[in-house]
Structure formats: structure tokens, C-alpha cells
Write a protein that binds this DNA or RNA. Structure first.
Lengths: 343, 343
DNA sequence: TTGAAAGCGCTAACAG
DNA sequence: CTGTTAGCGCTTTCAA
């Protein structure tokens, strides 16, 4: 392997017979340079294949062109699809992504924030299920522009992009009711206290109320993640607790929904014949799994894209109109929910 | 948002009443320093919350502590699980990951290599299906340590980590034969020419030969990716072409296998009753999907871990024993393959 | 329009 | 053991 010494601005200057300032000017287009000189420098640059060292540049400009992205886990499909959006847009703006995994552990979140901070990232996108106040504080204290992508930002004063949880949950619940389901179990993510403020729960309740169905807290389950395993376990619990099985289960994510379906199968129930199941997110998996998932579509790629655009605006010191932006959703009907009325 | 001026080595030196070199020495533990002085400096550091600026450090040491990882797509489960391994190990060695997507496009691969190079990454891990000679050349010319994670490195002289494709394919084929399957279709990734040198094909053929089953090229399908869609399409093709349906289909990945299964379903065949399907990789999805996938387990996390360790060794200038390392595999029996003899 | 020079924050000789 | 000094490669005043 040949390790070549990289060529620097000095080399270019020497070759072109100008000062390094001039070279700097042409590569940054920062100050007027005679066309003739400019061309000469450009030629040399092309000839030598010179690429400015961003480290040196960053050192003086204090701009690293780096954005940190903290995700619960890359293998989580939800995060991965958002990551795609982040990656693509950031490249467009000449930013690079520094990636960190947290496994949803607060300590890892904190550690990674500091790590990224040390690496001089200009902004941080934080993807998480639940927003921890301490994490918010640390981020705020650091002075680094940060935007959260999370289920919901509730009452915390942060930059946040998410889908419209309240109406989405309401509409899916309504859809389920319209299909003849009355006993609808709901799965939520978060800790127990968070439940009170959960927008999805509110939407669910509202739809119930409008249809004169009594709210039954025994069929809403709160779990700490949005994994397949959590959905599987909660469903087993749910079905063993209740004497009468629910007509439908509204899961907190598509992965959870699949856990739900498999648990139903393993307990001898058919989906959707015995129990209907609805997901959330419309991840790639939702179309692949059989029965295909009826779910709430969310523009995951766009969520990532919007978040990164916010960060870039903040970095540039531009004004952000809304601290919280929500993106549209859509109910997508597939196979996992049955119409009980025509049954 | 408060943007504070970061505190520098000078500030620490002043506060501690020593020179900046001394501070540098204590933070790097590079030269002996009196315990008393050391402690004083350490105290100031803790007090002020000083964090060395890695940019400045990198500029002089020429070490960015950055490793570039190029993946076909983050949403690909295979890549994502490997990425997990890479991420975790690199953090252990104080390296950070710079991520780039290629969507398997050669141009994007080339572009990203240059981008990462400009960002001064010390090494590059390249995850790809097919190894392109030009990409290899560019990487080699750059002088940056690189290791490939790909299906197989065939005859190309590069650092590569992969699973033992030949024996794995052979063993799975043998397993299928043992279960009474004779007409076994095979799915491969790569371009047509690559087929000739494909290790999996070799393993497959070898198992066939040992069991005196004639090789039938009409039931081996080569496709360009390892996606669900590719598996789905190829299966439709396969089943419409052949008058007699195959007993089993050995897919090139778990995602492909699921595409195969769904195509079978959609064509009215049951899996595994009518057609058995085997996967490759043992991705999370393989356990989740129903029927659960019988597949070849590969230590994905470890593949990432080994690759990153190789890079770090190379960066340090240490000798690498083997340019190509292969990791063990294991046949995992689940539900997608039936025993035809007891049927 | 251009060049000289200072300096970003840090490490690494080189003296002492 | 410690301080001084010279850069790393680049941007940015400040003069000319």
C-alpha cells in the first residue's frame, strides 16, 4: 500500500507561483482574484488533485461540517429509514454524519453527546423513544443545535419533528371502530408516568368517546421500547389477563405489531380472523410480512430530511419558525385488519 | 441557546500555572510529570470541563480517529447488523464512524470514497455485494487502509472478511438433500459473469455431485441485489418457467428468502408444504417471519467487529496475518424447510 | 488585486 | 521534569 504525502495549499501556491492566500481565495471564492491567476490556480489544483484539508479549515473556521446522529439502534427499521433521509440531505449540504448507538440507554445517550461534542459536531439529531429531561439539559447547556425525533415532545421545550400523533391515533382508532371493532387494545411506548401525557392515548380516547365506547384502562399496555419482543410479551400478557379477547390491537409500531401477531398465532388465535392488528410507521417490513400490515404511514425519510434541514438552518443562525414540526400521516389499509361487520 | 466559548489548553495552563506542554503531557500521559503538578492540572481540567479539541490534535498528529463505513443501504438488515458490530468496537478504540450510503451504485461508492478521504478518515470499511475492480484500485491508490465485507472476495487481492461461503452453501445444500429434496433451486447475487466464480455455487454443485444429483442450470437464478423485491421477482420467473416446481429454493439472503416465500404464496404454493425455502445470514427478521426461516447463521456482529479490528491494526502499522478472514457459520433449523421423507 | 503574517488548538522536538 | 518553540494546513486581517 502506497502512502502518499497529501499535497497542501503550499504546494499549489508554489506551483502556481502565487501566495497561499490567493489559493485560499480561489478555492473559497471569497475575494476577487484576477481571472488569469484564478485559472492558473484552478489548473494546478486539477493537475495535482489537491483537496483542502477540512481539519485545518475547521480549526480556523470553527466549522466541522459534521453532524452527530444518535439513534437507539441502527438495526431498528424505524431509525434506519429516518437515517436514510438524514444521510441523503446532509450530503446535499456537504455535511457528514457521525453515528452513535445508544440502545435506548440514558447513560449511553449522555456519553455519546459528549463524544460527539468533543468531535466538534455542529449539530445533533437525536432519535429516541422517550425524551429525558436530563438529556435535554445537557444538550441545551452544550449550546449545540439539537433536534429530537421522537414519538412526541409533549410539553418539553425543544426542537422536535414527529408525525401528528394525536390525529393519527384518533383516525386509526376511528377506522378500527368503523370496521366494527369495539374492544380495541392499545399499545404505548414510554414509562408509566408518560402515559398520562401521551398524545396517542389522547387520540385513542377521543375516538372512543365520539363513538360512545367506554375507555377500559385494562386493555392499554405500556412498554419501554418498540421492539418485536416487547410486542410479543405484552400480547401474551394481555391475552392471558382478559377473559374476553379484544377485537383489535393497535400497536405502537410495526415491529410491535408483528410481535403481537406472532403472539396471537402462538396462542392459537388467527390474525385478522380472530383478532385484527394495526401497526404504526409503515416501515418496509409492513409490506413484506404476511398478513400485510394495516398501519399508519409516516414519511420517515422526510422526517429525517426535515430534521437535518432544521439543524443546518440553526447552524447558519437562521430563524426557525416552528420549534415543533409535525408531518402528515395516512392510514394504509392492508390485510391485518378485518371488517367485522361483513364477517 | 447559550453558545459558550470552549475552553482551551491555554486556559488550563494559565489556571494551573504551568505551560501548555505540561498540560498536553498530562492529558496524553506522554511524558513524566510530577505527581503534584499532574494533580493540579487534572483538577483544573475537571473544574473547567476542558475537552481537548480533536481537530487541532488531528491536524498535528495526522490521526483523525475517524473510520469511514460505506454501506449499500442502512435499511438493509444485513448491513445494519454488521454496522452494530463496527460501531461498538470502534467506540472501544476511540474511533468514530463516518457513514455513507451507496445504494450499490458504483458511482456513489467512488464519490463517497473521495468524500471520506477528504474528511481524513484513517481507514475505510466497505460493505458491498459485488467487488468492483475500479473501486479496489481507487482505494488502493488512496493509500488508506481498507477492508471489504462482501459475499466473497474471489480472486481479488484485498483485505476481506466474510463467512465461509463454500462450505456453508455446501452444507445447506446437503441438509436440504438429506431432508429429501432433490430439485433444489439456487439464488445468487452478482452479475452474470460473477456466477462462474461464485463460491456458493461451487458449494452447491459439490453437494449435488456427492449425492449424485445432476446439476441443472435452469434452476439457478442470479440477481443483482439481495433484496426482498429481487427474491420475489426471481421466484415468479422461476416458477413460471419450469413445468415441475422445485422441492426447495435456497435463497441468497433472508430478505430474498422472504421474497421467495411471498411469491410462492401469491402463486398458490404453500411454504414449506409445497416448496421449502432456506435463507442465508440469520438476520433478526428470520426469527420473526412466519414460517420462521431455516437459514445459514452468520456472525454478523462479529464480521463487523473483525473488520474494524483489522482496520485499526492496519492503521497502527501492525502486521496482518491473513488478508482474508472467514468466520464460522451454522445451519439453523426452523420452519421453512420440511422433511419430505416423512411427509 | 495580492502577499505577509498572525493564529486556530494542539503535539513534539529541543533545551534546560 | 518542565518550558520554549516550531509547526500541522488553512483562513483572515492588514498593508501594500
Amino acid at each position: 500500500m502506497v502512502t502518499k504525502k497529501p499535497i497542501t495549499i503550499k504546494d499549489v501556491a508554489r506551483e502556481a507561483g502565487v501566495s497561499i492566500s490567493t489559493v485560499s481565495r480561489v478555492i473559497n471564492d471569497s475575494k476577487p482574484v484576477t481571472n488569469e491567476v484564478k485559472q492558473r490556480v484552478l489548473d494546478i489544483i486539477k493537475e495535482t488533485g489537491y483537496v483542502p484539508n477540512p481539519l485545518a479549515r475547521s480549526l480556523v473556521t470553527k466549522k466541522s461540517q459534521l453532524i452527530g446522529v444518535i439513534v437507539p439502534e441502527v438495526t431498528d427499521t424505524f431509525s434506519a429509514e429516518i437515517l436514510n433521509g438524514i444521510e441523503e440531505i446532509s450530503k446535499m449540504y456537504d455535511y457528514d454524519i457521525l453515528l452513535a448507538n445508544t440502545y435506548s440507554e440514558k447513560e449511553a445517550e449522555l456519553k455519546n453527546i459528549n463524544l460527539l461534542r468533543a468531535k466538534q459536531v455542529e449539530g445533533i439529531v437525536m432519535i429516541c423513544w422517550d425524551i429525558d429531561q436530563e438529556v435535554v439539559n445537557v444538550l441545551e447547556n452544550s449550546g449545540i443545535p439539537a433536534v429530537f425525533i421522537s414519538k412526541t415532545s409533549r410539553d418539553i421545550d425543544i426542537y422536535n419533528v414527529s408525525t401528528q400523533n394525536y390525529p393519527a391515533a384518533k383516525e386509526m382508532t376511528k377506522y378500527l371502530i368503523d370496521k366494527g371493532h369495539k374492544k380495541i387494545a392499545l399499545m404505548l411506548t414510554g414509562n408509566e408516568n408518560a402515559e398520562l401525557a401521551d398524545e396517542r392515548l389522547e387520540g385513542y380516547k377521543s375516538a372512543l368517546k365520539e363513538n360512545k365506547i367506554k375507555f377500559d384502562s385494562s386493555i392499554v399496555k405500556t412498554m419501554s421500547g418498540t421492539t418485536y419482543e416487547a410486542g410479543y410479551a405484552s400480547t401474551k400478557e394481555l391475552l392471558s389477563e382478559s377473559k374476553e379477547i379484544p377485537h383489535a390491537i393497535f400497536a405502537s409500531s410495526d415491529e410491535v405489531a408483528i410481535g403481537v401477531i406472532n403472539a396471537c398465532f402462538d396462542l392459537g388465535y388467527k390474525v385478522p380472523e380472530d383478532i385484527s392488528v394495526a401497526g404504526f410507521n409503515d416501515v418496509k417490513l409492513a409490506k413484506i410480512y404476511r398478513p400485510k400490515l394495516t398501519t399508519v404511514y409516516q414519511p420517515l425519510f422526510d422526517i429525517g430530511a426535515v430534521a437535518i434541514r432544521m439543524i443546518i438552518k440553526m447552524v447558519k443562525g437562521e430563524e426557525i419558525e416552528d420549534k415543533k414540526v409535525t408531518l402528515p400521516f395516512k392510514i394504509v389499509e392492508r390485510e391485518s385488519v378485518i371488517d367485522r361487520k361483513t364477517k
